Amino acid sequence: MPDDAQKRFGLTAAEIAEYQRNGVLYPRPAISAAAAGDMLEKFEALEKKEGGRLSKRTNHKPHLLLTWLADLVRHPVILDQVESLLGPNLLCWASDFFSKSPDDGMRVTWHQDSTYWGLSRPDIVTAWVAFTPSTVQSGCLRVVPGSHLRDQLPHGDTFAADNMLSRGQEIQVKVDERDAVDAVLQPGQMSLHHVRLIHGSEPNRADHRRIGFAIRYLPTYVRQTSGIRDTAMLVRGEDSFGHFDPEPVPAADFHPDAVAFHAKSYDDTTRILYAGAAKRPS
């Protein structure tokens, strides 16, 4: 890890060792609570514009459509910490919101992120940034520390209506709930987790919404293995590999060029994520 990353917000040797041991770090600084509140307002305004709920299409890599999310995925406090884990040349491969309203019953079953992504190596980190309090009661992220050291495990698709995952996927091995811990976060904090970490979350039983933004980072040497040409945004360093077509930063929110690029990205990523699936999103 470069020395200058340590001088900014890079992780310490002890924190890196903890991540390597557990596959997760939390809570970590990301943005200020005030900035999280501002982004929450923008998110809820976007929901209102779309009829009260964010569409699956808009929630696919929304950093390609919205300048404030393009800024967030390139935030130096986040990138300094991710660089400590993945090195200096970083791509943002994906992003999406995870939003639960009180008593809406939505949950995330136990799974590994790597299951349907088609990426060549598990050197991938998710930064999960909280816009609202993410607590046990509101259905925070639950993780099984150390489970990232296992290989890719079999999953089954459920397509359950109350499951927030793309295919309602669920790991096909028994998870001992006693091994799980709760990644509690306050607005502006984030967790960092490994792509093979077993994790999930329970429904929101609080009196407030639980909203977080997941950003998927990978080093430039990782490639897409599906045979479909993939895209990613270079957010730090250089890309000497060219495994992904470069994604542009939007010039303005919903700029026509950004909308056109995003539409193709959505179609291509859908082909990757739903390869062999019994269903696809409408």
Rank of each mutant, 00 (worst) to 15 (best):
Gly37Lys: 03
Ala214His: 04
Glu170Thr: 15
His255Gly: 10
Ala278Ile: 03
Cys92Gln: 00
Gln189His: 11
Gln152Arg: 11
Arg210Glu: 05
Leu185Cys: 13
Leu11Lys: 09
Ala127Cys: 13
Ser134His: 08
Tyr217Trp: 11
Ser95Met: 06
Leu79Asp: 12
Thr58Cys: 06
Met1Thr: 13
Trp128Gln: 02
Asp80Gly: 05
Met233Glu: 05
Val184Cys: 12
Asp71Met: 00
Trp128Ala: 04
Phe261Ser: 05
Pro256Ile: 01
Gln6Tyr: 14
Ile228Arg: 10
Thr270Lys: 07
Leu40Phe: 11
Asn22Ile: 02
Pro145Tyr: 09
Thr231Arg: 14
Ala35Leu: 12
Leu46Gln: 12
Thr67Val: 08
Met1Cys: 15
Pro29Ile: 08
Leu25Arg: 08
Asp80Tyr: 07
Gly168Leu: 10
Pro29Val: 10
His148Ser: 14
Phe241Arg: 14
Pro248Phe: 09
Val144Ser: 00
Asp80Arg: 03
Leu40Arg: 05
Ala17Trp: 10
Leu64Met: 03
Asp230Ser: 12
Phe241Lys: 10
Tyr26Gln: 09
Leu119Arg: 11
Glu15Trp: 04
Tyr116Ile: 05
Cys92Asn: 01
Arg210Gly: 02
Ser201Tyr: 07
Ser166Thr: 05
His199Ile: 05
Val144Asp: 00
Lys100Gln: 11
Gln186Ile: 01
Glu44Ala: 08
Lys264Cys: 07
Ser84Glu: 07
Asn22Tyr: 06
Ala13Val: 13
Lys100Ala: 10
Arg209Ser: 13
Ala45Phe: 09
Ser120Phe: 09
Ala127Met: 08
Gly23Met: 02
Arg210Phe: 02
Leu192Met: 12
Ser99Val: 11
Val222Trp: 06
Ala161Asn: 04
Pro219Ala: 09
